[in-house]
Design a protein around this nucleic acid. Sequence first.
DNA 1: GATGAATGAGGCTTCATTCAT
DNA 2: CATGAATGAAGCCTCATTCAT
Lengths: 218, 218, 218, 218
Amino acid sequence: MAPNPTRSRTTKAPEDRRKDLLDAGLRVFCDKGIKEATISDITRAADVAKGTFYLYFDSKDHLLAALKERFIQSMMSEAFSLLSAVGQDDWWELTDRTIEAMVDFPLRHPEELKAFYFQIPSSPETQGILSESDTRVWEMATESIQAGIDAGVFSASDPALAAMFIHEAIDGAVRHRIMYGIDIDRDRLVAAAKEMARKILAPERLPLQSATVPRSTG
Amino acid sequence: MAPNPTRSRTTKAPEDRRKDLLDAGLRVFCDKGIKEATISDITRAADVAKGTFYLYFDSKDHLLAALKERFIQSMMSEAFSLLSAVGQDDWWELTDRTIEAMVDFPLRHPEELKAFYFQIPSSPETQGILSESDTRVWEMATESIQAGIDAGVFSASDPALAAMFIHEAIDGAVRHRIMYGIDIDRDRLVAAAKEMARKILAPERLPLQSATVPRSTG
Amino acid sequence: MAPNPTRSRTTKAPEDRRKDLLDAGLRVFCDKGIKEATISDITRAADVAKGTFYLYFDSKDHLLAALKERFIQSMMSEAFSLLSAVGQDDWWELTDRTIEAMVDFPLRHPEELKAFYFQIPSSPETQGILSESDTRVWEMATESIQAGIDAGVFSASDPALAAMFIHEAIDGAVRHRIMYGIDIDRDRLVAAAKEMARKILAPERLPLQSATVPRSTG
Amino acid sequence: MAPNPTRSRTTKAPEDRRKDLLDAGLRVFCDKGIKEATISDITRAADVAKGTFYLYFDSKDHLLAALKERFIQSMMSEAFSLLSAVGQDDWWELTDRTIEAMVDFPLRHPEELKAFYFQIPSSPETQGILSESDTRVWEMATESIQAGIDAGVFSASDPALAAMFIHEAIDGAVRHRIMYGIDIDRDRLVAAAKEMARKILAPERLPLQSATVPRSTG
DNA sequence: GATGAATGAGGCTTCATTCAT
DNA sequence: CATGAATGAAGCCTCATTCAT
């Protein structure tokens, strides 16, 4: 047993090196869990020396923060491009597109989800990042719904919570699919989610206050 | 070879000692995070010597598993008592009660939530515990909804996903309240959740397929 | 997981308890090795509570010392009974009996051998016990050989070392048999040992000083 | 999270560092015994940080195994060089050289002997190393003796056991000298050993079957 | 006497971080 | 820029020993 084998010294553009490390970090965090992942694991996966890591990140926590940052960025940019791309002529059409994005985005990023939703927030500072983005997404959704209500198309006595429910419902379902390996077809998920959203946002028509349950449940 | 006792030695019934350690563990996990929590922290909080910990648990992971177990137990028992207690005469009444329980239970267990939903599932074995309970809750809810549909009171084209959405929506919202400190009044949450559930489960009357968005939202 | 199950309280004559612990200790030391053996292992094997151990021995090292003591005692007493029992009429007969004892004694105590010859002497004090007994056995053997020489029956230019060689040769061979599981028949061992001893002690008639090796052995 | 270096950092060629650790380990094992030796002791003796140890060995047991390996290597290589160097013309000459080597080799490695012969074989795997080498040495010796018999120079009814006896006798005597500090002059040991070997291997001339012991031993 | 829960010193091992090359 | 050997603080866990019952 002897210390590591020597690697041939290679130089890369800093952004590429950084990206290598981010990618390696993500992979390792997902595979072993954040706690179990070591810097060695990461540098090995990135095929660089351990010391190189510290040329690009101050610490493991900083790598984690950078990873979250990157994830949030792509999420937000996708959200914005959605909102601007969709022709905003039809409220229900917009709703459908949004639902699809809510399902498809996490399905395209299962690794990040596993890492970020199911792992320790290492430090108080990085703690809030996901929360912050969630909050921003929530606010955007709330505004959209409010606008739909103002337009007389949607109905919800508590738009903010309606937005949160829809968001969490879909996120939760997708998370289940990803984490627990529960097999739910993407299309089925989208269809059901659309129905849910439409019903929640549809003009009220509350059910009769008392639908008596038949005497025998059996 | 020659221990040097400083703490006054107290003997307790094993169940009590065990409970002390479980409680201490929960507290410390919440305060510092699972990763950061050390056995020393926990034994200090439980006011026992470090070695005592290992009389009751094989490792930190085993404590965590025991904690989850305990949480699941209380959750499930509460769920069952709810279902049997509620007079099952009125489907909407049952729905309302269930919603209230879904909101109130986690609000009564904020610590566990913080620890279990936002922390690493330390090992593959303990991994599935929450998943399993979630799944069982989900199945119960699905059955209830299916029964309501069969009774002609509810309507949902995908009862299983409807159940999951409702569950996840409420859980997610409560989690937000707890984790991010977002201030949402419990009653407001309950009211909105009831409305959401009723709309989702209400007999279909989908909105007009195309409600044109007014040209300018501003 | 909870501390030990409760045992039914039994009282025994102190010597019996002590013997139980010695026997249990020996068994455990052999099975797991002295270092790996724990007091718990021993008390479990003796079917007593941990605290009981300290009623009979001051420490693990003291148990070990007591065990060695016991072994030495039985060894020496056997040696003495041999010397007095054997009719001391015939030097070669005495030699044969001694050889047989040297082979048979350890074969009857394989456990002790495993434990004492192949394990750490835990502390400087217990260290010398085997050495001491070995030395005494050696001295006895040396005296016998010297007497045989004086009687004109044996021959050895260095009686002390001859005694040591014979003793070590046999001990070593037996140890091999026991430790490494090398299969050597007891009778074969005895026969070969007798031949060896007789040759060593036989009146000198050294071989021709130079027996040229035939050019090619093949 | 913020190491606090105090030792001046020196980098060495891995083989040198490894050798330092092996040497330090040997020294400490001998001084304190294997059980009592701690990794700290060893790294202190090698003047490296504790972590450095684990760069070169997986555990204390692995160090021990490496140490044994090294010992065996030097032993075997010495044995082979002896066999090839000695002019194989004279069987008795070869015998004498072998005896000298058997005495001198351990006397040149007292530390290893103390450590390996008197200490726990820590794990089942490392267990067999000494045994294996012993066995190989034994086989070589047996073959030599058999060849001598075939050449009509030696005589032994059980060559294998004769080889083992000679080997164990010498080893045992040397071990005594080393371990128990019994003062036996090297030359005296060699002389006596040569005599023993010659007698054992000399053509049979068994003593008269009954040399009567004089009536009174006194 | 006997019991076994409780104790805590101390050993092993990991790994984030540093720094000489 | 890159490397990887070296560092040591920090955590986990064991187990000989004690002592209240």
